[in-house]
């Protein structure tokens, strides 16, 4: 065990897991309360398109996937704002385009790429030092938003119009949120996998919602659950040699069911 943790790949994975768990469970509270979980799916599949392009160009996929996903997130927001389409429709369209592009890009790269699989399902072995640096920078930015954006995002999540009457620029704030969300999704993909990233964003926040009485406590609880489940999940996945992303998600799901049981019990007690 101990030696395992001394191994640098495991250390990297653990650090990445904690940071990614923190960021996605933090942004997750806005996703859950704004009913944007489909946005998470849309952006992770946009990330797939970006990753595939990176693989095709034989560069570090992250550098392509980040701008690719940011553009997709801006595209979704623009399409929603400028047309009569609902956000689910605009996400669905960009989702399909990105996956289609991704498939074409991968098929153009004739040689077989094991890489693509790592991205689909997530792998702790794939976390590089460069990923870790990007993740740390993003985590730092995320901490900063806690001081400068949290209360504004919270306000406009509660009621956009009321927040606007208090001179909060809700539209600009939405873009900031969506761009940070896009980057968070891309950096989470290596560890969790494209298929599961959306769930990874939603489950800790949903569990926190069941327990919390205020949006602030929901945020704090969600972050704690996100970080704890990453740690437990990574250790379990190492011991039993299981895929990291899937294991973390199952730990999150376990906590979710405990939260349901807890909220039922506490309602009974209060009656």
């Amino acid at each position: 065990m101990i030696e395992a943790f001394m191994q640098s790949f495991m250390l990297r994975a653990m650090l990445a897991g904690i940071l990614v768990g923190f960021m996605s469970s933090y942004f997750g509270v806005f996703i859950v309360q704004r009913r944007m979980s489909f946005m998470g799916s849309g952006l992770s599949h946009a990330a797939f398109g970006g990753v595939a392009l990176g693989i095709l160009l034989s560069t570090e996929p992250l550098w392509i996937a980040i701008p690719f996903t940011i553009i997709a997130s801006i595209g979704i927001t623009l399409l929603k704002d400028k047309t009569k389409l609902g956000s689910d429709t605009s996400i669905g369209i960009l989702f399909a385009i990105s996956v289609a592009l991704g498939i074409i890009f991968l098929s153009l790269k004739r040689s077989y790429t094991a890489d693509a699989f790592a991205y689909l399902f997530g792998s702790i072995l794939s976390v590089q030092t460069s990923d870790l640096i990007v993740t740390m920078i993003l985590a730092l930015l995320t901490v900063l938003t806690f001081f400068f954006y949290w209360s504004r995002w919270a306000y406009s999540t509660f009621d956009r119009e009321l927040a606007s009457t208090d001179r909060i620029h809700v539209t600009i704030d939405d873009y900031v949120l969506n761009i940070l969300l896009a980057i968070t999704i891309v950096v989470s993909v290596k560890l969790v996998g494209i298929i599961l990233v959306a769930a990874f964003l939603v489950i800790p926040a949903a569990s926190a919602r069941l327990i919390a009485g205020t949006f602030f406590s929901m945020t704090i609880i969600s972050i704690c659950l996100g970080v704890i489940s990453s740690i437990i999940g990574l250790i379990t996945s190492y011991i039993f040699d299981l895929p990291s992303g899937a294991t973390i998600i199952l730990v999150q799901a376990l906590i979710f069911f405990i939260a349901i049981a807890y909220s039922k019990v506490s309602i009974k007690e209060s009656i």
Partner: peptide, 21 residues
């Protein structure tokens, strides 16, 4: 579905932002 209490909503009147703790 938004978790909030009346004291928090009223405090937005005082602060023009959503309260933390």
């Amino acid at each position: 579905s938004f978790p909030a209490m009346p004291i928090e909503l009223v405090s937005t009147g005082l602060k023009a932002k959503w309260p933390g703790k």
